[in-house]
Design a protein around this nucleic acid. Structure first.
Lengths: 230, 230
DNA sequence: TCCGCAAGTGACCGGCCAGTCACTTTCCGA
DNA sequence: TCGGAAAGTGACTGGCCGGTCACTTGCGGA
């Protein structure tokens, strides 16, 4: 994961940054593979090719801090980027335009998921983990809330413009993310299934899934020939 | 959790059954409180008022077996009951009737969740846990698939009758469950929030939430005055 | 070249817990 | 009432892992 670094940093600082990133990379791969509990700091250190103690030089609070940092710097930040780039200056004034904008968002989101499968899944599975310090639980909740908020803003806007039904924006945002989560989870089950094929693949490609989710969410499940709601 | 027991069982067998249930009750309360990893067999034994060894008499595979059994006998079975009672002989021939039937299902489901909050949440959080024997992971996946299948049947039927859009039933079932899950998760976050109030309560009561989810899913998010999809 | 310090290291410690098994208690039929 | 089998028990073991800290390494300035 290459990140543009301000050239003002000294070589020492740059190297420190790079080592930090390497540790996060290693932590991410171990977490993604074994989950939070299954991951051991020893293995993270080994995979990063550092001594265990060095990890604690960079992340004094150890495992918890690695986990939270990964969520903040990689996952939450990535989601915010997707939201921002999808809705920045987008047209939400009319139903058709809103549909198109949100369709684009869902597509982008699914593609983002595809390329960051491991980390995303891990946090989908473990983001609401029990047995975590209450203080940290609140941190996670805050991040989730931030993502929901960011997504609620354009929804609110579209509702205000009359493009969407007059529904409360936050619940809608929850539902939107919930659907995407459902897609991801279904993919996981299908994956794990590769050994003993039990259920058929539920969704198609990311693009097809985006189409599908957009239809369900925006057009609704009912046949269009039905009378509008009572 | 009282269960009607066939009177043909001897007292010994009945007592054994009762003890088994007591152990499952205790396990459920501990799992719900601390999650799978945080729960210890010692604590389950203590709460059930049995020695630890006795637990292993009843559940030779220990913690894993308790967890899986709880999921099978309590959660999955409960969900199947909800699905069955909602759709058995229900009218799915026309859009309005289908909407009403599914609305009833969602309502029932949310009420069921309300009364079995702990166990359900626990499995929502931990059902896809990593770091579990592959063999067991498959078992869980199978149960989830079974629930999805059971739900896909009436959807299929409604689609065939022309009441719903011609969408594939399994993905729709996934989405439906995903939405309900989103509702649950949001409730959890709001709960945990009671200490440091960060986000506002997202959904209202169970009935209101059922209304909301039904509207979103069946009528769609777009304003009704929009032209039907291209 | 050499010195001192920042950085890196991994053996070790303490706590935790799943699962075992030799022992005790309870039950029931003779 | 008694004896043996079935059921129950919890101290114990082995393994794991997060976090520590005394030691080593190597870098950069003098």
């Amino acid at each position: 994961m290459e990140v543009a670094v301000a050239p003002s940093l000294s070589r020492r600082e740059r190297e420190r940054l790079a080592r930090r990133e390497a540790m996060l990379d290693a932590a991410l791969s171990v977490f993604a593979e074994k989950g939070y509990v299954g991951a051991s700091v020893d293995e993270i250190a080994e995979r990063a090719e550092f001594g265990k103690g060095t990890i604690y030089n960079y992340f004094p609070d150890g495992k918890d801090e690695l986990f939270l940092t990964l969520f903040e710097e990689r996952v939450a930040a990535g989601l915010h980027r997707v939201i921002e780039s999808s809705f920045d200056g987008a047209d939400l004034s009319a139903p058709a335009a809103a549909r198109k904008t949100f369709h684009g968002f869902i597509r982008l989101l699914l593609h983002y998921f595809e390329e960051s499968r491991g980390p995303l899944l891990m946090f989908m599975k473990e983001g609401h983990r029990t047995k975590i310090a209450v203080e940290q639980e609140v941190q996670f909740a805050r991040h989730f809330a931030g993502i929901i908020d960011a997504l609620a803003a354009p929804i609110e806007q579209a509702v205000a413009a009359g493009a969407l039904r007059p529904l409360p924006a936050h619940p809608v945002a929850h539902v939107l993310m919930g659907n995407v989560r459902a897609y991801l989870m279904a993919e996981v089950d299908a994956d794990c299934d590769s050994s003993g094929t039990l259920p058929p693949t539920p969704f198609g490609s990311a693009d097809e899934a985006a189409e599908f989710l957009t239809t369900v969410l925006f057009d609704g499940l009912l046949s269009p020939d039905s009378a509008p709601d009572a």
